[in-house]
Every structure is written in structure tokens, then in C-alpha cells.
């Protein structure tokens, strides 16, 4: 597998992530993997220990992971790494990044150029995200 970094944070090395159910059993784990139907709020008791949250995309059309990432950052103020694995497209790179995702797991040998291109594509966005983006003039747009 290839780890692709969406932003400045370098993907770290962690022990194999446990499922949400296992996390409840063995509260010591430092990395967890959430399925797209899992509630992010369930991580609350473990937050200060967790270093990595992996969000699984069963298929790229299932957009729940975007909300999960955003809730992790915005509601739970999670400062660790958020990683996405499963079926995602390079066309989603910027959306993932702006919802707070740091890295993406790609199949070994994947071409990362479309991912890189997508991250550089836009110089403006029309809504605030969880990133500290620079607000343009009065604030309806942000610079990228």
C-alpha cells in the first residue's frame, strides 16, 4: 500500500488500528478504524489517547466519512491523524483535506499525480472549512 499525504502532516506509523467495538473492550489502543456508519461521538472517552483515526470508505459515493472527519475536528477537536482507506477517488482529494483528513491509503503502485493535481487545482473556495484558510475580503470566499 501507498500512503499519500493530503497536507503538511506526515502519515505516522501506528499499531494496527482496532475496531470501535474492540476499542471499547481494550481501551488502551492508540488507533481505531471507523466504518462509515459508526458514530464519531463514541470516541469521546478515548480521545486523549488516540493518535490515529482511520475512516473506511466502502465506496467513494458514500459521503458519510466527510461528516465523520469534520465532526472529529470541529466537535471533538481531535488533533491526531485522520486517515482514509477504502474506495476513494483523486477527485475527492480536496474535499477530504478540507474536512480534516490528513492521509489516504492507496493500493500499492497507485499513480499519485492525479491526487497532487487535484490538491493544486483551486485557488479559492466558497465556504469555510476546518482548515485555517485565509479569508478573502469580507469573508464569503477563502484563499487556498
Amino acid at each position: 500500500m501507498t500512503l499519500f499525504n493530503l497536507g503538511a502532516r506526515e502519515a505516522g506509523h501506528y499499531a494496527e488500528p482496532v475496531t470501535l467495538a474492540d476499542l471499547v473492550e481494550q481501551g488502551e489502543a492508540r488507533s481505531v478504524v471507523l466504518e462509515s456508519g459508526d458514530e464519531v461521538a463514541a470516541l469521546k472517552p478515548y480521545l486523549n489517547r488516540l493518535e490515529l483515526v482511520v475512516l473506511r470508505f466502502p465506496i467513494f459515493r458514500d459521503g458519510r466519512g466527510f461528516t465523520q472527519a469534520r465532526e472529529l475536528r470541529e466537535y471533538l477537536h481531535f488533533g491526531g491523524e485522520i486517515r482514509v482507506e477504502g474506495h476513494v477517488l483523486p477527485d475527492q482529494a480536496d474535499f477530504l483535506k478540507r474536512c480534516g483528513v490528513d492521509s489516504v491509503v492507496l493500493p500499492e503502485g497507485s499513480d499519485v499525480r492525479p491526487w497532487e493535481r487535484q490538491l493544486k487545482r483551486y485557488s479559492v473556495s466558497f465556504q469555510r472549512s476546518v482548515l485555517p484558510e485565509k479569508v478573502l475580503d469580507v469573508g464569503t470566499r477563502v484563499a487556498r
Partner: peptide
């Protein structure tokens, strides 16, 4: 304003 806000919305582009 809604047109702009919804344009390439990072969270809401793959809704159910």
C-alpha cells in the same frame, strides 16, 4: 450566497 456556499462543498458533495 447559497449558490456560492454550496459550490464544491467539501462535506456535501456525496450526499445520499
Amino acid at each position: 450566497i447559497l449558490r456560492q456556499w454550496s459550490t464544491l462543498h467539501p462535506e456535501f458533495t456525496f450526499l445520499p
